[in-house]
Amino acid sequence: MWFGAGLLVLVAATCLVGWRSGVGLGWSPLTSLARAVLQLSVVAVLLRGILSVPGTVVAFLALMLATASWTASGRLRELWHGRRAAVAGVAAGAAVALTSIFLLRLVDLEVRYLVAVAGIIIGSAMSAATLAGRNFLRGCRHRRDEIEAWLSLGATPARAHLDIGQEAVRESLLANLDQTRSTGLVTLPGAFVGALFGGASPAEAARFQLVVLAGIALSMTVCGVLVTRLLGRSPYVLGATADER
């Protein structure tokens, strides 16, 4: 009872600060937390079955990937083929990172490790798709004259949007790189703390966290690059109105 009340206090404070500062969050913090409570409750039940019947892990991973792709694609729907770019980016980023981690035997290929690492990696790829795509759209709007100049000189859409895409990817990675740099001094990431709570030694927890951090960086970079390259193929000047195209 007290736990639920405490969560409500935290989310109410978030809504209040957002409202008073004019950020425009509305009730999103509350609805997001409510959705998280529901989803975690369902996942907790599913994981019991997955851990006891390993063959079901494939279906669970597919569910995570589909949900992440759907969420990211919704954020990029106003961009040219934004939904497709988001799905491709999330899938490619997660696949490359997870395949590399387990092929290099950085983590044992066991169901519990696969689910834990995949959840983190897929979630990071989802964030990268959203951040890179939104930064790309913002850059196109601010540097529209530059894009039009490239196109007028006969450049392909991919070349006209290349610099903007590269900047968008860099911006999308900054927060993750800062967290990686400060790990252990400023932050104790969830994978590290979770491993400790699970009974691992500090050294084992640190190794697991380093694998996760490296995997996150790889998945986000692959995802961001692919998303912006696909968006950069647009035959239109992104950010222009329908009448101007």
Rank of each mutant, 00 (worst) to 15 (best):
A132Y: 03
A116T: 14
V115R: 02
G133R: 03
A160V: 09
A149K: 08
R159S: 12
S152V: 14
G123W: 05
L151I: 12
A116E: 03
G123T: 03
I122T: 09
I121H: 00
A129K: 03
R143H: 15
S127F: 07
I122L: 09
D145M: 09
A129W: 06
M126E: 10
W150V: 08
V115C: 02
L131I: 04
V117S: 00
L131H: 05
G119N: 05
T130W: 07
A118I: 06
M126W: 02
A158L: 15
L137I: 04
A128I: 03
R159C: 08
C140N: 06
V117L: 12
I121N: 00
A129Q: 03
S124N: 15
R143S: 11
A129G: 12
L153Q: 14
A128V: 05
L153I: 10
G154D: 11
W150K: 09
A125H: 00
L131T: 08
E146M: 11
W150R: 14
E148T: 13
L137H: 13
G154C: 11
E148H: 05
G139Q: 02
R144A: 10
H142Q: 15
A132N: 05
S127G: 12
L151M: 10
E146S: 11
T130C: 11
F136G: 04
T156Q: 12
N135C: 02
A132W: 02
G133H: 06
G133L: 08
A149T: 15
A132K: 01
A128Y: 02
L153R: 11
A158W: 13
S127L: 13
A116W: 00
A129H: 04
L114G: 02
I121C: 01
T156P: 08
N135L: 11
L114E: 00
V117H: 00
G139H: 05
